[in-house]
Amino acid sequence: MRLQFILSEIGLGLRRNLSMTISVILVTFVSLTFVGAAALLQTQIGKMKDDWYDKVEVSVFLCPQNSTAPTCASGEVSDDQKADIQAALASPEVKPYVEKVYTETKEQAYEAFQEQFQDQFWASAATVDDMNSSYRIKLTDPEKYSVVSEVISGRAGVEEVKDQQRLFDRLFSVLNNATLLAGGLALVMLLAAVLLITTTIRLSALSRKRETGIMRLVGASTVFIQLPFMLEGAIAATIGALLAVGGLWVGVTYLVDDWLGESAGWIPYVSTADVLTIAPALIAVAILLAGISSLVTLSRYTKV
């Protein structure tokens, strides 16, 4: 009896304020889409870090024959210079950060180069002597790049020290900024959602003032009087959250899986599984929003 009664009250309230209900659904939909997008961007960054930080290395390119770099004034790197660099890598200040050092000779570099650019006509013009021999250093902690870089770069025989992580960091900062933007927009929209839900519940409570008045009079409990209004807000907000999850799902499927996945497939992308992971959180946010709005409004408009 009770449940059925509450459900019919909710249905009545939602239909009576249809336009407001729809606007609540839309606002929560848009705001939670932004929240979800921000969360997915962070997931994306996490995935890339996991995937790439294992592979990133610091490359120490040694001087080739005709380099213009000042450290290469003495021509191609000599064995003495190589020994000096290796000693530096083995020194106590650098050693703890170095996991492994691979050596790539210019012959190996030439082979790799030819393989990578075999379709390009200009590749055949390169010779073995144009290539750098190099040390590829795997760090124990990729963040400690600068320690290694300071010790090695500027030494005679070293043309350039390159940290691949630097490249990624630039990409990550772009993604982080996008997260901030989405998060900021989400915040504004969430505020709008709270205000709108508050107004909707207030309208609904006012339009049923007669009913609630009688309910109070005959001794209906406060929870019983307020529950339909609370659930109304919660249901509208939850529908909005579900739409947001659906929107993100569609976005990930078509934009990321189909489009980005095809055009730049070497990057590990967020998947629809990640959308499902954040879905419960989005719905929880929606219910929380509606709950806060209800409490604020109802304490004032359906006083016992």
Partner: peptide
């Protein structure tokens, strides 16, 4: 019946 419904009386009682 409203007066009984809102205080949770069972249907057969109403």
């Amino acid at each position: 019946a409203f007066a009984l419904q809102v205080i949770g009386k069972p249907r057969h009682h109403i």
